[in-house]
Design a protein around this nucleic acid. Structure first.
Lengths: 223, 223, 223, 223
DNA sequence: TATTAATCGAGACGGTACGTCGGGTCTTGAC
DNA sequence: GTCAAGACCCGACGTACCGTCTCGATTAATA
């Protein structure tokens, strides 16, 4: 997940917790991984406390015990820093199981997603999307780092279901992803912050039934 | 559509150039409607030229030929001003006809909407939603002034179709609205800026067929 | 003592309290003397409270219950208004008696002046002189309305003494005035705010003895 | 002559163009002496051109090619800045010689002072005193940096004369300083801008004769 | 008594400057 | 050669007043 120029940060082979450095030949003082983390941590904490608008890199530097120049050395601007801090903080995608019933797997996944959106992740995703509207690089990072993996995983589950005969095969699976995902996002972004569980269930029933092979709308794994 | 404190702006009784006002104290010089418009116009033009991030009220004031204080007298902050300017600029909602076939009416409406999203309105709506993420008042205004009327109109069309026997009656029409609207919004907000027509058609077919009464998915007004 | 354009304010012959007007031909509402006084009063009070620097005509208008334009109708600027308010407030010049002994009269006068400078008048005079440095009109008003009458009175007393044989006659009386007055002013303006009584007495003794006719320095009315 | 927080500005040990600094933390970028000078120069020039009233720190910053914040970092307000700029511009005190005749030395000094007051220094001192009336810190700086050294030098000359038997020893020398200095200041501040030479001579004769030991008023070094 | 017009309060207006904040860059000595 | 510290230039913030300009409401001489 290379974002800006952090790609030279590498996990130590031996001690996962702490970072080591590419020690090659280079002379001079090496990059301080502690500072790097302190910056992202401070950024995220302050985003939670005061929001993006009032976030200042000056404040981040002070809180992280870091010089302002050190921030600018590694991130091009405020949005980029915030985006990376938010990405680190977003809860990991709820995994999509393979229980044998794809419909059930998907329902569980979406239900879990709605749950996450109601919590910390919701706020984080809202802000990431907002940031992305003002800067193309940031948008790209959001898409590559957040949205695409989630789309891939869900599309894969849909594909499994289709191959297994649960779903019809004549659909654009990316379209189905949109029908499952977008309404949650819309509610998140238009302040209907508490994404209603009943509503999510109704949505699942409608969408999944309409692509189900055998069974008409009246049937659902959740009934 | 009262936003901030502009509600006392009223049309003169006799269609005159200048506006008259309703003002309790009836004392003091009256609000200058020309300045009011100049501010919103300048704001919108500059939003298009340089975007919200780089928009400065100082610049707006200069361009509008207005004192900065005059802006702050009537809008609480940059977001509020931008939101109002954007709302003025958003193209009017494509009307939903009543051709006798609700499905066709809705398909036309959504197709038109996708068209708008590809143009000026798309950029405008993107920015409005982004702004709304950072300020509750602004969110409220966006919901009340933009989203709700569009939701109402579409839900009404769906209701007509249901009453007329075109659609099943056992659905939450607001959910159907979400399934029609949210995917467009999602594409708008995640940079798939050119909202693909083929994709929209597929979405319409899938959603509307699944709520159609008589005919299974194979049938659509667009086939 | 006409300052700016207040000269048409005249005392009613019959009722001192209320003001009348030069009624020449003019029709329309006449000048409101109550407002005029309220403005000067408010100005003076606020000068005492917050000083000239922080005095705002907006504040004066509010406090006087008067429109800002009403102030600008009658005074050209802040300095002019302040100067007039200060002149109204300056305590009247302590009169110079004619006890038969000019030296005693002068000593009493200067002692009284030092007393005034220690009080409200001190601050007022300080500010008037400061204001006058930045504006020629204001300087002229200060000289004509404040300094000249005081100089004239003291010079007159000196002249009486000289004619009466108390003082030598070969001096420029205006120079003697300077030697009596300027040191007090200097102490006032350089923050030795509490003009020391002992010092004033020493000054009086030195200056007046040096112009006394008969008796050398050893003698003074205050010994 | 430390005024505000410029006291750590020190001459390089080796007469170099740029200044070195003494700074406890010894960390961070050092104060830019070029900017410091540019600010004071611009301030003084603009004081001459447009006067204190119309002087704006915004203008100073622009003219000095400096950020406004840099000004506010080192001076608390406009008065303080102006005072320091004026102090730099005031011509150096005419030295008081030691010719053997203290009376002559003092006469020359005061005559020279009157000369200075007729020129640039006069204008500068007028403005310094006016400024000092509105701010205690500024007053303190004026007293410490301008008035006290001049008082000390003159008092010292008077002391020399007294020890040498030229002057009586029973006088408060500070009082004599006032009698010599204050009238000049009064003329300066009350617009008798062209301090008359004849008048100054008369003043010198009167004051110095009255404290002279041997010789009555009729005698002066200038006769 | 009704008309007329200068003046009043209020307060919005275009501006200028305030003093503060933060962005992004640069400089320094320490490590 | 990178770091923390922090000064720097710059530009915008939101506020306070400036002096000007409408407004409708008074107010008193005049007609």
């Amino acid at each position: 997940m290379p974002l800006y120029n952090t790609d030279y940060l590498q996990l130590s082979l031996e001690h996962i917790i702490s970072l080591t450095f590419i020690s090659d030949p280079a002379t001079g003082r090496r990059r301080n991984a502690v500072s790097h983390d302190a910056i992202l941590d401070a950024t995220y904490v302050m985003l939670e406390e005061i929001g993006f608008d009032k976030l200042s890199l000056e404040g981040v530097a002070t809180r992280a015990g870091v010089g302002k120049a050190t921030i600018y050395r590694w991130w091009p601007n405020k949005s980029a820093l915030a985006m990376e801090a938010l990405l680190r903080a977003v809860e990991p995608m709820p995994s999509i199981g393979d229980s044998g019933c794809a419909r059930k797997d998907i329902e569980d996944h979406i239900t879990g997603l709605a749950q996450l959106f109601r919590g910390k992740s919701g706020r984080v995703v809202r802000e990431m999307i907002a940031l992305a509207q003002f800067d193309d690089d940031t948008m790209r990072i959001f898409n590559d780092s957040y949205l695409k993996p989630r789309r891939s995983a869900l599309v894969e589950a849909l594909r499994r279901g289709a191959q297994r005969g649960e779903f019809r095969e004549d659909f654009d699976l990316n379209l189905v992803f949109d029908l499952l995902y977008a309404p949650l996002l819309q509610r998140l972004l238009t302040g209907s912050a508490d994404i209603d569980e009943r509503q999510v269930n109704a949505q699942l029933k409608l969408v999944l039934s309409s692509i189900a092979l055998e069974h008409p709308l009246t049937e659902s794994s959740q009934d």
